[in-house]
């Protein structure tokens, strides 16, 4: 058992983890977004819904079979409500960037924002 409050090794660990955490946190915010944002909804690993966020302007709700309700508005997506005790998914809030996730573990639902790399053109002829 240790009598130490905090040691030098602790500070190193904290610093390293802090850097890793900040790095991981910044990453989605600086990466190029891609042209076509899509919200992919999976339940139990199977994709059940793909919502085109590019064209999602007016507020629209989608109710899944398992009772999870999603809402898209202004190029963003969020979990509006779900039949789960903790509501972590709902509290995750609004997703707008590539890589952002909202997950409801009890219902097995995951909403991920993806950027379609297919849409990244070098140029267009017209």
């Amino acid at each position: 058992m240790t009598k130490k409050w905090i040691s030098r090794a602790d500070v190193i660990v904290l610093a390293v983890l802090l850097l890793v955490g900040l790095g991981l946190w910044i990453l989605p915010r600086v990466l190029p977004q891609g042209d076509a944002l899509v919200a992919e909804v999976t339940v139990g690993g199977e994709t059940v819904l793909e919502l085109d966020l590019q064209t999602a302007t007016a507020r629209k709700t989608y109710t899944l079979e398992n009772g999870v309700v999603l809402v898209t508005e202004n190029h963003t997506v969020a979990v509006l409500s779900a039949d789960c005790p903790d509501k972590v998914c709902v509290n995750t809030g609004v997703l707008s960037r590539v890589g952002e996730v909202a997950a409801c573990v009890p219902t097995g639902t995951v909403v991920t924002v993806k950027g379609e790399s297919r849409a990244i053109l070098d140029g267009i002829t017209y």
Binding site: L17, E46, A103, T112
Partner: peptide, 19 residues
Amino acid sequence: LVGNASVLGYAPILLLCAL
């Protein structure tokens, strides 16, 4: 449980809070 590795998207914020 959800069959999707995307939940790792929570990792950064959880890591920072864990600190």
